[in-house]
Amino acid sequence: MLSLQVEGMSCGHCVKAVTEAVQEISPGAKVDVDLTTGKVQVDGADDAAAVSHAITEAGYTVKG
């Protein structure tokens, strides 16, 4: 499971955008977004760099 810290998320639309961005590169991945902490956990995707890039391309900042 990948765990990422993501900045710039504030609403349900953000959750959907991040989830769709991850699932575009890894269909079937389970994405859990915690808006309060900015934590995104992805189960079913092994390439952290690709997931980070997809989230960045969706307009969010991945820290760490």
Score class of each variant (00 low, 15 high):
His13Asp: 10
Ala49Ser: 15
Leu35Val: 06
Met1Ala: 12
Pro27Tyr: 01
Lys16Asn: 13
Val6Ser: 01
Gly38Lys: 01
Leu2Gln: 05
Val18Pro: 05
Glu7His: 10
Met9Asn: 04
Lys39Glu: 11
Val15Leu: 03
Val42Asp: 00
Val40Cys: 03
Leu35Lys: 08
Leu4Glu: 00
Asp43Trp: 01
Val40Ser: 03
Asp43Asn: 09
Val51Pro: 07
Glu7Asn: 09
Gln23Gly: 12
Ser52Asp: 10
Thr36Leu: 12
Thr56Cys: 12
Ala17Met: 12
Asp46Gly: 15
Ala54Glu: 04
Gln5Ser: 11
Val62Met: 04
Tyr60Gly: 12
Val51Trp: 03
Met1Ile: 14
Thr19Met: 06
His13Gln: 13
Gln23His: 10
Lys39Trp: 08
Val51Glu: 06
Leu4Arg: 01
Asp32His: 14
Val6Met: 01
His13Lys: 15
Gly44Tyr: 00
Thr56Met: 13
Val42Ile: 02
Cys11Trp: 07
Gly38Ile: 03
Glu7Cys: 05
His13Val: 14
His13Ile: 13
Glu57Thr: 14
Ala45His: 01
Ala29Gly: 04
Val15Tyr: 09
Gly12Pro: 04
Ile55Met: 08
Glu57Asp: 12
Met1Pro: 14
Gln23Cys: 10
Thr61Val: 15
Gly28Asn: 01
Val22Glu: 02
Tyr60Ser: 10
Ala45Cys: 02
Ala58Trp: 07
Ala58Ser: 10
Thr37Tyr: 02
Leu4Tyr: 01
Asp43His: 08
Gly59Lys: 10
Val22Lys: 02
